[in-house]
Design a protein around this nucleic acid. Sequence first.
RNA 1: GGCAGAUUGCCCGAGCGGCCAAUGGGAGCGGACUGUAAAUCCGUCGGCUUUGCCUUCGAAGGUUCGAAUCCUUCAUCUGCCA
Length: 423
Amino acid sequence: MSTESNVLDELEWRGLIAHSTDRDALRAALAEGSVRFYVGFDPTAPSLHMGNLVQILTAKRLQDAGHTPYALVGGATGMIGDPKESGERTLNSLDTVKDWVERVRRQIEPFLSFEGEHAATMVNNYDWTASMSTIDFLRDIGKHFPVNRMLARDVVKSRLEAGISYTEFSYVLLQSMDYLQLHRDYGVCLQFGGSDQWGNLTGGVELIRRADGGKAHAFATPLVTKADGTKYGKTEGGALWLDPEMMSPYAFYQFWLNAEDEKVSELLRIFTFLSREEIGELDRQTAEKPFLRAGQKALAEQVTTLVHGAEETERIKAASAALFGGGDLHDLAVPTLAAALREAGAATIEGKEAIPTIVDLFVLAGLAKSKGEARRTVAEGGAYLNNERVEDAEYVPGGQDLLGGSWLVLRRGKKNLAGVEIV
RNA sequence: GGCAGAUUGCCCGAGCGGCCAAUGGGAGCGGACUGUAAAUCCGUCGGCUUUGCCUUCGAAGGUUCGAAUCCUUCAUCUGCCA
């Protein structure tokens, strides 16, 4: 690595540094040699989501620049729960946490290289936390945490009225202890995380200084927000999951494809490995010919490829082209149509003699949560069968409506599609 | 421990015995306009076997022909006094 192209400059250009401890010291450390760094993931769900992806990709950027990752899964911290403003978390059972730890671990692994000079290492904080005695914890760790400082943290302050358990209040000690442990065992001297983690990050830096007189660094990545400042990465279904079982790759791709013009550049920087030149060119196209959506297309393709692979992405692109192509669905080759619908999401029902009504089909295909909602959609003029608006909620599709003899294409609004195969 | 006030649909917030599935705003959803963008305007926004029925207004009981609205107890929160 050369000093003139410090990876920190790269991260800053991508907008990935929201806060940082002494930036010059960090820059110097990164220029000096391979820095061992860590980033942690708590198993709060069966899958990681968009916010975690920022951390994973940042870890990869650092590894690509010659630094050495320690990816931590929170088998211990996941048992406790990081305090959040909305209120106390529900504790998960040990079995659930263990299961989620495994899933999270498997999701992280493909992004990092576990071979070569800067091979990544997976660690689980359960390994050094579970066996620790309460006495040791309170004497060796707790002694370094002034409660008045802990109370001053924003999350804690926001919870003082509504209430916060001692368990969650103590969370920062555990995460700080992780950093100390990794610092001692492996010489890890950089931790990063989301900006909501800033207090936990500096907690560790502080602990290393107080306990060992050691020097450690930390930085926080920004919270990705929409153009209007609200949280990004939320869909009707909740978070933007990386697990294909929890969010179909097609839906994942569509999410990125629908990015607002104002956000595309920022998202390209954070979520893709495209170069400055390539992103600059896409920015120019977005500004000059926004209707081409070149930035959105590149973004969706790049991120989906990173998470779900090139093959799957090709299938999704083909499906999107077929379904959004604007052509007559009757002109599509049946195998193309079938493949596209399977990507987009398709239900199968039996019995061509007894096809359900449009309302039932909408519920069945998952386009409406209830029959009432399906009826409303029809009344609002937002229900389509084979790209034609349906006026009658009780309409029963017949043989003439079956594309290729067995397919129905249902659409709600502009972009919610689902296929139904009648066999 | 005592007194006073709160608790409403995804969120915020009106309602204070019948006209309440419940005003209004936000989010969401649909339409128009576009570029599978944003903004704007319009509509919609508990469920169902949908001219009607069922379940909702912190929980459980009660008064009443009838309760989100009154009473009792419980839970939680907020003030004031110890």
